[in-house]
């Protein structure tokens, strides 16, 4: 029987949007029996949010001190112990899911499918390879439980009008002591989250310094947008690592994406393929970013961006 388990992603307080996108993917596999497993400590708001997701039948709560940080070595045996009850186990293709699910797969001695972008059947999926320059269809055979991570940019989040049951489950697997959480330095703040924002403004190497990168933040503020960056901008220290967009950064699908002083390397474009509208400002008319931009402007960004900010502010005040 087809039964799908989704491993929820959360930060201890809030359920990550990625979970609702995994539910949408799961609905392509089965129209019944979708459960969500939540691992953590003192999880009530997260559990409540998971129980509201449309299409979810049960929420399984694994509440324990050892689960207070999402360490793959600690969580993997717990997910593996649960997997036998399911035909499929899904997790988002975020750093959380990418870290965890392959470890579960190896414990179960099964292969795994990364970055599912479309479900063709319960055993057949499409996924991007070569930084999205080819789309591969895979058919999985001879596995007990099928494990996959979900490319969240390919799926719309399901709504929140459901009422799944919440079941507390005992945490029995002993936690290994060889891996210890030390700390996390989050750069976040109260800006819109890059992965779920409807608008994103990204800056590239052209910004030239962390101070001048503030221009990107000004435009983002005027648009209520999240901020992103190219790898070159992150490597140079203009922006923190968690803002990197692309093959090895975040894959995003905003309604509006502005690329400022970004050349449009394939590794960057991989991250924005699903953006609804792309705007590029670059002083080089031959920059590859213009090949994919819906609106392109050849200009010096240090002139164009302040003008854009001013135009947006004057619109807002009228």
């Amino acid at each position: 029987m087809t039964r799908v388990l989704i491993v929820a992603e959360h930060d201890g307080r809030q359920l990550n949007d990625a979970t609702a996108k995994c539910v949408r993917c799961a609905q392509g596999i089965t129209d019944a029996a979708i459960d969500v497993a939540v691992f953590g400590l003192e999880l009530q708001p997260v559990l409540d949010a998971a129980a509201k997701l449309d299409g979810v039948k049960r929420v399984l709560a694994f509440n324990a001190a050892q689960n207070s940080h999402a360490l793959a070595a600690v969580l993997a045996p717990q997910v593996a112990a649960l997997a036998g009850e399911y035909s499929h186990v899904l997790a988002p293709s975020t750093t959380f899911g990418k870290d965890l699910l392959p470890r579960v797969a190896a414990l179960l001695d099964v292969p795994m499918v990364s970055d599912v972008m479309a479900v063709e059947s319960p055993t057949r999926f499409r996924r991007p390879i070569y930084a999205g320059n080819a789309i591969l269809t895979v058919e999985v055979r001879d596995v007990g439980t099928l494990l996959a991570t979900v490319r969240t940019a390919s799926f719309e989040a399901v709504g929140s009008n459901g009422s799944a049951s919440i079941e507390a489950r005992p945490v029995t697997a002993a936690a290994p002591s060889h891996t210890r959480f030390v700390g996390i330095a989050a750069s976040g703040g109260d800006r819109p989250d890059l992965q779920s924002a409807r608008r994103v403004v990204s800056g590239g190497r052209a910004l030239g310094s962390a101070e001048k990168f503030q221009l990107i933040y000004q435009l983002a503020d005027a648009l209520c947008a999240a901020v992103g960056a190219s790898r070159a901008a992150v490597d140079a220290g203009y922006a923190p690592n968690d803002l990197q967009v692309g093959q090895t950064g975040k894959i995003i699908a905003p309604e509006l994406y502005l690329a400022l002083g970004i050349s449009g390397a394939i590794q960057h474009l991989t991250g924005i393929k699903d953006a609804r509208t792309i705007v590029a400002i670059n002083k080089d008319a031959d920059a590859p970013i213009f090949e994919v931009a819906d609106y392109g402007l050849v200009a010096d960004l240090f002139e164009a961006v302040p003008q854009l900010v001013a135009a947006l502010q004057s619109r807002a005040s009228t």
Binding site: H178, T179, G183, I184, A185, Q195, P240
Partner: peptide
């Protein structure tokens, strides 16, 4: 390098 920023762990 994780989605939320920079996480530090210690491993044996």
């Amino acid at each position: 390098e994780v989605d939320a920023g920079l996480e530090t762990i210690e491993v044996d």
